[in-house]
Amino acid sequence: MTTPGRRERKKAATRRALSDAALGLFLARGFDKVTVAEIAEAADTAVSTLFAHFPAGKEALILGDGAERGRALAEAVRDRPQGTSILKALKDFLATRGPFEAEPDAYTRQVTELVVTTPALRAYARAMWTDNEESLTTVIAAETGRDADDLSLRLLARYVLEIPDIAGTAPNAPAALEVAFEHLTRGWPDL
């Protein structure tokens, strides 16, 4: 593996500075009371630099653009250990994310609380999950030898992708994750 060049390191540092500045301002004043200009100023960058790194705006500063989620979901299904069901692999994957983590670090706890309590961030997070419906359906179909147009697989993918929004806001999110997958397993016992 090659180490990133100077340019890539600078880009990563700028992205981190913008994300850190945004989180600090959001936690101090609330998401809706912070402007992109204030975030750029706090990170010592221009607003145009902020949008060059985060074209989706303020929400992306905290939650990213969703591309990583799609890749990670597909990998969870494709790279699951031999003998592990697709549903178990997806449950295990979600158990490592945000509100479902058993022992989250301070940053994860702060971001999770911010997302759950901020309607714009919660809606953005939900969209980032549900935008992966087609790709998750496709990978499940490929792994099971079924047709990607199978309505049952599309329904399963959508239900799985709604879990972070529904179960992730429960008082005991890890327990809610277990309940959600118990129900999914009853509906799709062969997956």
Rank of each mutant, 00 (worst) to 15 (best):
A175F: 07
L25T: 06
E101A: 13
V47R: 15
W129H: 12
K91G: 05
F54C: 06
A37T: 11
R9H: 08
R16M: 09
E182P: 04
A180W: 08
T117W: 07
L63D: 06
P4Y: 11
W129A: 06
R97T: 07
E178M: 08
T138R: 15
R69P: 02
G24C: 08
T96N: 10
T3E: 15
R29V: 02
V116K: 15
A173Y: 08
V34L: 01
F93W: 05
V34Q: 01
A22V: 12
L177A: 08
A42H: 04
P119H: 03
R122S: 14
S19C: 08
E75V: 11
R154C: 02
S152I: 04
L63V: 02
H183P: 03
P119N: 05
L18Y: 00
R29Y: 10
S85A: 13
A157W: 01
F100R: 02
D190K: 11
V139S: 00
S85Q: 07
G145H: 06
L161A: 01
G5R: 11
R80L: 11
G70Q: 10
A170Q: 12
P104A: 07
L61R: 04
Q110D: 15
V36L: 10
T14S: 13
G98P: 05
R80N: 10
T49P: 05
L61P: 00
L114F: 10
V77M: 02
K10P: 01
G168Q: 01
F54A: 05
V77P: 00
V160F: 01
K11L: 13
F31K: 02
R80G: 08
G24I: 07
R146N: 01
G83M: 13
F26V: 04
V36S: 10
L184A: 06
E38H: 04
